[in-house]
Design a protein around this nucleic acid. Structure first.
Lengths: 193, 193
DNA sequence: CGAGATAATTGCTACTAGCTATTACTGCAG
DNA sequence: CTGCAGTAATAGCTAGTAGCAATTATCTCG
């Protein structure tokens, strides 16, 4: 398959950017996989905070993710609770310590670089990256892991004056405004890409 | 330091893109660090093919890189030779096996995604990424590792009718057209960013 | 020539990932 | 309600990996 030199260079740049960000992650006592887990939990909704979901999201295995979360729990970054939906399952939540760490997430440094590089006009870069990721995911496994807002099962403003005005048609659950921006394992894009 | 949500999302997307590419790398018998080494050697000029240079480029340690290269050598992807410039140093070259592997580099898949996502108009995305990486590198360690073409020491067309018309003022070496596009450890950007 | 710096490698240690059981629970069929 | 195939999570085992520190060979400068 032919690839233009420009596209290839862009791929190289993404690779290098990520590597630089990763080297910043080493400074704490969290490894890259652990950072990824924290970031995921910070954005995932309450139906998607299980080891299995995280494993799917990270394209990793359940055994590995199990240990990652165990390590995070041991260090006090996450807490574990039983799932109300499935007795075999567990659900994780971030602790204040994790919130504090995320406020100093090395990824933020890349974000500031992006902001500077685009003079505050991030939209175009963001759009290109979004489309690219969508393509990549589509070819890899089809798991989108998008936000509820853009999901096929998302019903807008079903209960107008409620704190949870929206609704998930798949899980049959009320959703708040904040919920609608969280990542969900069940997400299926609403419209064709 | 405040960061816009858009910039942060862009950083997240880069992280995820890279992770997907990385999962593709597992399929062969080369790990991510080994892929990075091959990619580097494919683009580095003949003054920059040492373990130390690679370690700087990857922001890794020399010990680690030494093993990475040893493993690649054992598997037949790179060959080792003494350095003409420094008796302590060694220089690595890619074998045909490596060239063959690079033709199937998983990063190319990301590149095709980028190409599709931008409808062939990669320039803008590329520009944003270039600027971002420049910022990131500048803050991290200042090692640019750019191509000779954009180097302070690069002298254009000093020998007009030669196969090596250009010249490196620092190393005092003639450079071919191809040389001028390779990555060099010594590179210092010609103009202020 | 001698001293200090540098290139590369290797021993040691700690960590990490994947594979493969193993345990506990679910949900369906009869 | 009982058994059974399927799934969630985890632990044992193994192989591979990275970083640090020590070692050897070589360079450079006085």
């Amino acid at each position: 398959m032919p690839v233009s030199p420009e596209a290839l260079e862009a791929a190289h740049l993404i690779d290098r950017l990520e590597r630089l960000a990763r080297s910043g992650e080493q400074s704490g006592r969290l490894n890259p996989a652990q950072w990824d887990a924290l970031r995921y939990l910070a954005r995932a909704n309450r139906f998607s905070r299980t080891p299995a979901a995280l494993a799917d999201y990270l394209a990793s295995t359940r055994g590995t993710v199990s240990r990652t979360l165990a390590s995070l729990e041991y260090k006090g970054y996450v807490s574990r609770g039983p799932s109300a939906r499935d007795g075999r399952s567990v659900e994780f939540a971030l602790t204040p310590k994790a919130e504090h760490a995320l406020a100093r997430d090395p990824l933020r440094i890349v974000a500031t670089d992006i902001e500077q590089a685009t003079d505050g006009n991030v939209a175009k870069l963001l759009d290109g990256l979004r489309r690219t990721l969508r393509n990549s995911i589509a070819r890899n496994n089809g798991r989108a892991f998008g936000a509820c807002l853009s999901c096929w099962h998302f019903r807008v403003r079903v209960r107008l004056s409620s704190r949870t005005p929206h609704h998930c048609g798949l899980l049959d659950e009320p959703l708040s405004e904040a919920d609608s921006r969280t990542i969900c394992v069940e997400q299926e894009p609403a419209a064709a890409a």
